[in-house]
């Protein structure tokens, strides 16, 4: 699998560490914290995920990937992300 890092360019997925769904917003208060920590949607289709380019630029990126076709649909710096 190849991931197109916005800084380094396209790289082997083994350079990255996977975290999970990037669409979750960390709640400011206690409400919703349990859901934020434990509940996940299981999407069939395009999904945006956080990956850490551990063996590259050490930047967190948000990758949009289709979980059924494995097509890579784009990646941006997580800090610029979908929020």
């Amino acid at each position: 699998m190849r991931i197109d890092c916005p800084y380094c360019g396209e790289r082997d997925a083994q350079e990255f560490v996977y975290r999970g769904d990037a669409s979750l917003m960390r709640p400011e208060s206690e409400d919703g914290m349990a859901d934020y920590v434990y509940l996940r949607d299981n999407l069939a289709g395009p999904m945006t995920e956080h990956w850490y380019h551990a063996q590259g630029c050490r930047t967190w990126i948000a990758v949009t990937r289709d979980t059924t076709t494995h097509a890579m649909l784009g990646a941006i710096f997580a800090r610029d992300g979908v929020r």
Partner: peptide
């Protein structure tokens, strides 16, 4: 200077 990351 060698670019190693965004801003680094």
């Amino acid at each position: 200077l060698i670019g190693t990351g965004a801003g680094s």
